[in-house]
Amino acid sequence: MRKSFTAVLGYFAGGLTLLVAILVPFVLMGFFSNAVARAGLHVDEGYSGGVAARTIARDGYRIVVNQPVKPHLLQRMEPFVQVAWEPASALPAQISEDVDLDGDGRPDVHLTFAVPADAKEPLQVNVASLNDNYQSFAGVENESYSRLVMRTDRGIMVRVPLSRKFSTR
């Protein structure tokens, strides 16, 4: 009696698995994907660069300054601020300007770079810190997640590392 009951349960579960298989492409995949998307997860800010804090309007283009990214205690990367010049099509051939990174109304870094017409040409960015909160650098030899100069689909992005006093390591 017990054996036939477990057998019925077993076949019922087997049939259910088959039903689940049929539902996978139509319902379940989307259901699980939506659940993951709504779970409040985010890609680690060391990769994504954090969320935009302010947009500074310039003549024909804009500068998007993100909130500073302060890695977890265990992460080896330095804290940094991501700044992006957008859109790529509206950028002048040469950019040399002071940027207020922390939103206190005073400039924090002076950035200089040429915007090559050829998208494959390497970028040469010079970052000069105007106070001791940020690190200066010219070009990037050993690129890392916190010290990066790159071209994106939208424009040019620079990650400026915060000075070591903000770092736990």
Partner: peptide
């Protein structure tokens, strides 16, 4: 709540194999 992978949660034009899509597929 961080995903330690340099992808995107939702699909984009340059990356249709997003984290949510692929985890959803794997779970199913």
């Amino acid at each position: 709540r961080s995903i330690i992978f340099p992808g995107s949660i939702l699909p984009t034009a340059s990356n249709p194999h997003s984290i949510a899509i692929m985890i959803g597929l794997w779970l199913a």
